[in-house]
């Protein structure tokens, strides 16, 4: 798959990478059900516009710090479907050499500095990457994705304050899917409009429809321009919805009507396809689908036969 230019991604680019995330995660889910993938699996199906829109505005050098729900972020930032498949299958060819698993993806070359098993764990690290960029004056940005649940960790508030004082290129992206595990955002959060939070810390911010990849991209582009101009940190507030349960295939206690509404009326793939019926014709979409699926299938097939991490090497490198 070709990567379109960062400056002006096409509708095709957006569609392709959102579909790549969706189909990759559907594949991961299948593998999980088959017990080929073990451990925790937090799917982001339904949320694809957030990572694709944001990461399309970034360059490889910018450093992204992700969450426990990181597959979409990883694929959008790195385009490395092979690395993620192999990682979740526990292979030595995985992006964390098979040592990390779903929550601990890593790809330095492509600026992905880690999934995180701790809610809020990556937020202050992204501030560190922003500081590093400022320190080295290399024009890069430190980016953190965080959920509506993570927004209630004290570390977010401390980090926003410090980022504002330091005026470093720190981008905080709130991926508000309305729920944290089983707790609805209204129950966990006194002020759900994070732009107000940003304002309290004198940080510029924008809200956008997290189901509309172009809207996300437009907001992220403004943020990136602001950051690269050295104008201090920025916060994006994006509303989205995860379609799958919190983790794996556990039962979902949310209102099914609400979920159906999101699936029918706010599917990021339909939103963009509906906007460009000619550019994204059904033939082109089918072709993209075939290409994406072929790449995913090949990645899985390759991972299935790839070697596991070597025990001897593990012992040597970690002194165990």
């Amino acid at each position: 798959m070709k990567k379109s230019s960062v400056a002006s991604p096409s509708a095709e680019y957006f569609y392709r990478w959102m579909l790549a995330i969706r189909h990759s995660e559907q594949k991961l889910k299948e593998l999980y059900i088959d017990h080929k993938i073990k451990g925790a699996l937090h799917l982001s199906i339904g949320q694809e516009a957030v990572p694709v829109g944001v990461c399309a505005a970034l360059s490889d050098g910018d450093k992204v710090f992700s969450t426990h729900r990181s597959h979409g972020h990883y694929i959008a930032k790195t385009h490395d479907i092979e690395g993620i498949m192999a990682e979740l299958l526990g292979r030595a060819t995985g992006c964390s050499n098979g040592y990390g698993g779903s929550m601990h993806l890593y790809n330095y070359e492509k600026g992905f500095l880690g999934g995180n098993g701790i809610v809020g764990g990556g937020i202050s690290l992204a501030l560190g990457a922003a500081f590093s960029a400022f320190y080295q004056n290399n024009g890069q940005i430190g980016v953190t994705f965080f959920g509506d649940g993570a927004a209630n960790q004290g570390i977010l508030h401390e980090t926003l304050n410090l980022a504002s004082l330091l005026k470093v290129p720190f981008l905080a992206v709130c991926e508000n899917n309305g729920v944290a595990a089983t707790t609805p955002v209204e129950k966990s959060t006194s002020e759900t409009d994070r732009t107000k939070l940003a304002k309290a810390y004198k940080i510029s911010s924008l809200s956008a429809d997290g189901s509309d990849v172009e809207a996300v991209y437009a907001a992220a582009s403004k943020a990136v321009a602001h950051l690269r101009a050295g104008k201090g940190p920025f916060l994006l507030n994006l509303r989205t919805c995860r379609w799958e349960p919190h983790c794996g295939i556990i039962k979902d206690t949310r209102d099914q009507k609400m979920l159906d509404d999101w699936r029918t009326n706010h599917d990021p793939l339909n939103v963009i396809a509906g906007r460009y019926p000619e550019l994204l014709s059904s033939e082109l979409r089918a072709e993209i689908g075939r290409e994406v699926d072929a790449r995913i299938e090949a990645a899985v097939a390759e991972a299935m036969t790839a070697p596991a991490p070597e025990l001897a090497e593990y012992k040597r490198n970690f002194g165990v």
Binding site: G39, G90, R91, L311, Y314, V320
Partner: peptide
Amino acid sequence: SKDVPIPFNDELEDYT
């Protein structure tokens, strides 16, 4: 258990 954070891969985890 071994003096190392717990790795993901089955064989490494079981060894650890």
